[in-house]
């Protein structure tokens, strides 16, 4: 690897003190352990050192690319999802018009009804949300666990649906169309710096557009450095049991 410039993307901010001559380097290292904030980074005059600047730009770049990336539909097809699209036509419109990302056309709603299992106990939805990378990175690991686990528990599992250009609220529309009991939506989170892979799971019992957002139970930060997808899968199956038993979700549920 001698012909390669150092990979700045894999470097952990927590590990390095970049101050040239700190009064107490050991104390600086101790401070770094307490926070993810980019401290003890030193300076070039009043500006960042080159390493700090490039690391920041790399972390912003991956976040930006995650927002503008599309989910790998090869993966979606392989896993047997039924694919639909909201009223949004392209990524730019998706960003500008959150209202259109929450609804389907009449035809799409009819297609969902015609092609998917009606009245499932559990309806699984995957939505691109604000990060296609998040779905690419986590779906394969979590999908098998969820479908196997839920089927093993004897639940009637619905046809998995993939929604392109989707906001969280599409889960209400799908639940209403299919008369689902528990709806589980996996969606790409709005990326933070360097965290384009983070996925959230929203769950609701009889998910409905007539109910407030507080109907939803959330598991967030699903990715390899947060809650690993395998672990999140087990958590979601457990929550499904709770929602089915209590017949409610979100803030109404005292977990």
């Amino acid at each position: 690897m001698d012909d390669m410039v150092k990979d700045i993307s894999t470097q952990e901010i927590k590990d390095t003190v970049l101050i040239d001559t700190p009064q107490n380097p050991a104390f600086c290292r101790q401070l770094k352990k307490t926070t993810n904030a980019r401290i003890c980074i030193g300076r070039a005059g009043s500006r960042f050192k080159t390493e700090t600047l490039l690391k920041f730009r790399a972390d912003h770049a991956i976040a930006m690319d995650a927002v503008w990336s599309d989910v790998d539909e090869g993966l979606i097809d392989r896993l047997g999802f039924f694919k639909v699209q909201t009223q949004v036509n392209n990524k730019e419109e998706y960003i500008r018009r959150p209202d259109l990302g929450r609804i389907f056309s009449k035809e799409t709603t009819e297609q969902i009804k015609a092609n998917c299992i009606m009245s499932p106990d559990v309806q699984l939805i995957v939505a691109d949300g604000l990060s296609g990378y998040a779905i690419d990175a986590n779906l394969e690991d979590i999908f098998g666990i969820l479908t196997d686990g839920l089927t093993a528990k004897g639940y009637k599992v619905g046809t998995p649906i993939f929604v392109k250009y989707s906001r969280v609220a599409t889960m209400d529309k799908i639940s209403e169309a299919l008369n689902a009991k528990v709806t589980i939506q996996l969606i790409g989170e709005r990326p933070g710096l360097a965290t384009g892979e983070s996925m959230s799971c929203y769950m609701a019992y009889e998910s409905s557009s007539k109910k407030p957002e507080s109907q939803r139970t959330v598991v967030s930060n699903i990715y390899r450095k947060g809650i690993p997808p395998v672990e999140a899968g087990a958590q979601i199956i457990h929550l499904t049991d709770v929602l089915m038993r209590e017949k409610k979700s979100g803030t109404e549920l005292k977990l």
Binding site: R43, S46, F48, T52
Partner: peptide
């Protein structure tokens, strides 16, 4: 003023300690 402009709680970017110093200069 925030470390390197990266808010690790609110997940957005704002002006850094360095920016404050440079703008004063």
């Amino acid at each position: 003023g925030i470390p390197a402009g990266d808010d690790v709680m609110l997940m957005y970017q704002t002006t850094s300690y360095h920016d404050v110093a440079a703008l004063r200069d």
